[in-house]
Every structure is written in structure tokens, then in C-alpha cells.
Design a protein around this nucleic acid. Structure first.
Lengths: 344, 344
DNA sequence: TGGTCCGATGTTATCGATAATATCGTAGAG
DNA sequence: CTCTACGATATTATCGATAACATCGGACCA
């Protein structure tokens, strides 16, 4: 009502230049912060910019520069709290160094995972943070992305790419040691042998074995349960399976929080009390863990730090300032002891 | 090892054209699926494309077309399960019609919310799905985005923009009716009067009052608790407050699941059993709700449908095929009755 | 007082894909 | 047998920003 509506077509630097009575190049120079512009000219241009409500056409700029300031984050799904939180941290870390993040969800579909790096969208971003679930290391070797890639998460194999991982084995070992310290001896595991060679499962399993062996405790293969996609419903199923088997256990180490929350749920439904009858420990320390009933003890892999390491490393690669050999970074971890495994 | 490594510089249609002995335009025509190319020529080009591992330069294409096939989704944070799930659904819905989604998190910061629509990144996307938290309707009126905007969520005021909302009042009414049907009469509310004129709070409160009035039940203002950002910790705080006040209540209707999960947590810590002593109902039906202990009764706003409505509407706007008057779409809803409010 | 250098700005080329227009050769019409 | 029309392909212009290079008018020095 107050002022008339602006026209639809956005103004270009040419429009601004015409209005200010200078050449487009002078406008560009000002916009880029280059010097060598007379104050008076500068003033006129700035007025024109404001009057025309100039906004840079990012596409044109991108084409010319060959850079977009965008990176992809490829994860299975935002429905999984761990990945949602990871994404959030990546977005924040990226923003702090001037990058924007494209969240690409693959739903664990190998085709889509492949497409992330080879599809045309890959040419749009300056780099990719990649958390492959379905693709094995074999597939990865043959990848030829146009832009730098940093692998996030859990591969075992060293490859041509940078890795930023959480302390899988160490965290698992600590988790199991914690259970042992609480007097638990029959420690079940949920999440063993993840489908595909998802490294996390293997490494966490390894940590479990190390801790058990160090304590002189036998491991019982029947207490090591596989669990589909590591989501809550898988935790329920696996736990029901454990209970139904009749094999005694006094605690469960779940390979992520979603599984653990499912386990809590299933134990409660079966009338088994936590932590009195069975202690439960998770991994990831997603926000849910603090608010479940009982609250969940969990290994916190410092996701924020992990995200920042990954983004920083990727940025260095993009700028071509990283070392030539693939880097392997590991975040810190802690154990957050909560009700689900506290001494009663 | 098997084949030599490709050069770094990606091939352009000019490179392909040169290799195939045709003009770049012919290559372009083939890539766009236009006809009028001799099979033999077509064949030669296809070989060249493959040999050079051609990938379209999306930036150039974008510049020329004036379209990017990308939309922004502006939400407060992926750390909030409701928004994470919403984002996931939006991403999937968008993908099904060929759009990619930029998830922009604002952390509820007004400046960042403003920047979403006015910043230069706005010119990069074809449209924006916008879920403003901090910005009031006043701010919104003055917005002049270059691209179409669809508001997601919970504004009351009708504005110049399209809205896609969940059935706030209806859902709340149904939730309260459900509690009443269970014999509850002293029904507390957590989430009242959200800071800023966040419409959801007002509308849900309205539904609450309607249901109470319809049942001839008095409402007690002291049982209506404000709760910061509607995250879990706010639910804990608000519930503790309620308990400490000493005012009797037999149920809590929380304005979202996060608050409800916090409430469950706080009730449990205080030794109050759910649903025997106090029934709890949430709103959003995030995945957590099914897995909490006890599982949480919640209003499910059919987020998937909501996401699809929003994406479809935005797409129609982008293509200029929507009606000229702002649309107001509302998704369906259901109540998922679970343990937290089941008759004992 | 003429020449050189430099500050301030203008011109032109470029990024890669795509649309609009032009060209060439030949098959069918008159 | 020449002219037209059309299929197949090539040339040129365009999107908007930016880099490289060009120009123009003094100021300063010899």
C-alpha cells in the first residue's frame, strides 16, 4: 500500500550500472570489494543498488567462478535421529566457514548412493560429505567424483578418500567395560554383523570382544544378535528374539541408540525391569537418550566435533590446501552413564 | 590400475562435439531429447559422451534456464524430531517431482529467518518452503522474495502467501476430547502462549478450550503452562513447575511430542505413574512417540501428506499454474492412542 | 613543456548450456 | 529441369557475473 510494488525481473549489474551512469564492471568491482573507485562514484552506485534492490544472481556467479559454496551431505535418512543431529551439526559447521549444505538422503539405496557422486548434482557442489551405507569399499574405489569427498562414519578399509570417523572400537570397549564394572557378565549385543560391510558393526563388535577378553569373560555367540537397519523397530525385534531364546543375559550393549530405545521398549513390554534385571547401553548419545525412561547410558562420539572435523577437512581439500595423502581423523568420545545401567 | 585416470577438467558439450565431429548444438539437442538427428550421428555423439564421461554443468544450465530445480526448506533445527521428519518427507516428496531440497536451519533466529528470503541464496532456488518461528506476520507482509513462498505450519493470519498447515485446532480438540472420554477432568496444558505469535499455540489452545467447554468442564488458567521452545527440556521444566505448584491435575495435553516426552520423563522422576495418575497426550506423532515408555498417545497430523501438499503447491506456483489467490491447505489428522493415556 | 606512469573507469572475452536463426543439400513439385 | 520445401546440422546470441585488457586524463618529473 505504501510503496508501489517492485517489478518482477530482478535487476542485474547492467541495470545498476546504467542507472548509476557507469559501466557494469565498475559495479562489479564495488560489489567484490575491490578498490580504486572514487568515493563519489561509489556513492552513486550504492544508491542505484538500493533503489533497484539488486540481488546477485548466484547462478551466474557460480558459473563464472566454478565454485558454488555448496557441499553435499549424503546420509541414509533424516528420520534417524543420529543422522538428523549429525546433519544439524554439519550445517552449522559449514555455515561458519561460508558453506551451505545440501542434504541428500539415500534411504540406503545403493543406486542413489552411487548417484550422489556421479549424478549431475555432484557437479553443482564443491565437495561431498559421504556416509555410505549400502556401498561397499569395492564400489568406492571405482568412484571418480569431480569434487573432493570426505567419508563420514564407519568404513574399515582405507581407501583413496579421507575419513572422519567416530571411535568405534574404543567406544564399544569402554561401553562394555562399564557394564562389566557394574557387575554384569552375560552381556548381549544387538547390531552385530550389519548387512553390507558397514564398518561400524565390525569395529564395535571388535571393541566388545576386546573388553570381554580383557575381563576374562566368555562370549556367547547366541547373545550376539543381528539387527536390520539399526532403527528402533529393529531394536524391538532383536530384543524380543533374545528374550524368546531363553538364554540368560543381564545386560545389552546396543550398537546405536535407536536399537537401545527399541530394546528398552521391548524389555518394558516383557515386564523386565531396567536396569535391575537387565542393563542397557547405547551408542551415539542422541538427544533421545537423555529423555527416555529410564534414561539411556550411551557412548557419545562427540558428533559436533566430528562434523566440524569433517567440514574443515573437506574445505581444505576444496581449497587444495590439504596434504596429499588421505587423512584419517577420529573424534573423541565419552560415556554418559544414565539410569539404564546405573547401579541400583 | 586397469584404465588410465581421467583428466581433471570435466568435458563440455564443445569437447564432445569436437570429438564426434559435430557442432555443440547437435550434442545439446541430443541431450535434451529433441529429435531430428540422424541415427548415425546420434550414435557417434553417444560414443563421444561416454568416452569423455560427459556430465552436464548444472550451473551453466541453471543460468541459461533461469531455473535450478532446487527449493529451500527453512526450519528451526534438525535437532527437533518433528522438523527432521518433516524435512525427510519434504525431501522425498520433492524428489518425486524432480526437485532437490536445501535444508536451511534458522535456529529460530529472526535475522536468519529474514535472510532466507532476502539473502542471495534465495535467488538460487526456485521456491521456498518456509516455517518461520520468530518472524511475526508483520514481518512477513513486507517480504518481497523473488521466488514463490509457501508457508508451512502454523500461522494464524492469512497473508499474501500460501499456507499448508496441520489441523491445529481440530487435532487439539480431538486430543482433549479423548482425555475427557477417558474420564479425565483436570487437564493441564503445556505449550500455551508460545513466545512470538506462533500460530500453533493459539490454535491448539483454542481447540483445548472448545473441547473443555463442550464437555462442560471448567478450565483452570493455572494449569496452562508456557514452554520455551517446545523441546524436551522445556517439557521437563514445565512439568516440574506443574507438580511443584501443587494444583491437582489428572492429565496433560502437550502441544508437541517433545514436550510430552519431557513431561513423561519428569513425571517418572517424580514418581508419578502414567497413565494411572496422570495421562499424557502429545502432538505430532513423531517416531519417538511409539517407542517411549510408556508409549505416547499423540495427534498425528499426517506430516507426509502435509509435505506432499506443500511441495506440490509450491511446484505449481513455480510453474505459474496455481490459482491467483493464496491457497490454504490443511492436512488430515488422527489420534494414535497408546499407553500414556489408555484406560488402565 | 613533452613524456611517462597511474588512478579511474570502460570494453571485450569467458564460463557452458540452450534458444533462435541461418545454412546446406537434396527430394519432390511444377 | 529448375524451384521450393524441409530435414539435418551449423552459427550466433544469450543468461549475468567476473577477469583480462584497453583507454583516458591528469600529475609529476626531467
Amino acid at each position: 500500500m505504501t510503496t508501489e510494488h517492485q517489478a518482477r525481473k530482478p535487476a542485474t549489474i547492467y541495470d545498476v550500472a546504467a542507472r548509476a551512469g557507469v559501466s557494469h564492471q565498475t559495479v562489479s568491482r564495488l560489489l567484490l570489494g575491490h578498490d580504486g573507485i572514487r568515493p563519489e562514484t561509489r556513492e552513486r552506485i550504492q544508491v542505484a543498488l538500493a533503489e533497484l534492490d539488486y540481488r546477485k544472481n548466484v547462478m551466474a556467479s557460480n558459473l563464472r567462478n566454478g565454485r558454488t559454496g555448496m557441499i553435499s551431505l549424503a546420509i541414509p535418512s533424516l528420520n534417524q535421529p543420529y543422522f538428523a543431529e549429525l546433519a544439524q551439526h554439519v550445517i552449522v559447521a559449514a555455515r561458519s566457514i561460508g558453506l551451505t549444505v545440501f542434504v541428500e538422503t539415500t534411504e540406503g539405496d545403493p543406486d542413489r548412493e552411487r548417484e550422489i557422486v556421479s549424478g549431475s548434482r555432484a557437479s553443482l557442489v564443491d565437495g561431498i560429505l559421504y556416509s555410505p551405507l549400502a556401498l561397499g569399499s569395492g564400489d568406492l574405489e571405482t568412484i571418480d567424483a569431480g569434487s573432493p569427498i570426505v567419508l563420514l562414519g564407519d568404513r574399515i578399509l582405507h581407501s583413496q578418500f579421507d575419513h572422519v570417523t567416530m571411535p568405534n572400537a574404543g567406544g564399544a570397549r569402554a561401553a562394555v567395560q562399564h557394564l562389566i564394572a557394574q557387575g554384569r557378565t552375560r552381556i548381549a549385543v544387538i547390531g552385530a554383523e550389519h548387512p553390507s560391510d558397514y564398518g561400524a558393526a565390525t569395529l564395535r563388535m571388535q571393541g566388545y570382544h576386546e573388553a570381554m577378553r580383557a575381563a576374562g569373560l566368555p562370549t556367547d555367540a547366541r547373545l550376539q544378535v543381528v539387527a536390520g537397519q539399526w532403527v528402533r523397530s529393529d531394536g524391538v525385534t532383536a530384543t524380543e528374539q533374545l528374550i524368546a531364546s531363553g538364554i540368560p543375559f543381564d545386560s545389552i550393549f546396543c550398537f546405536n541408540d535407536a536399537l537401545a530405545l527399541g530394546a528398552l521398549r521391548a524389555l518394558q513390554s516383557a515386564g523386565i525391569s531396567v536396569p535391575q534385571d537387565v542393563a542397557v547401553v547405547g551408542f551415539d548419545d542422541t538427544e533421545d537418550a537423555s529423555y527416555s525412561v529410564p534414561s539411556l547410558t550411551s557412548v557419545t562420539p562427540h558428533t559436533e566435533q566430528l562434523a566440524e572435523l569433517a567440514v574443515t577437512l573437506l574445505d581444505r581439500r576444496i581449497k587444495g590446501m590439504a596434504e596429499t595423502t588421505p587423512q584419517d581423523l577420529v573424534s573423541d568420545f565419552d560415556i554418559k552413564v544414565r539410569e539404564s545401567s546405573a547401579v541400583s
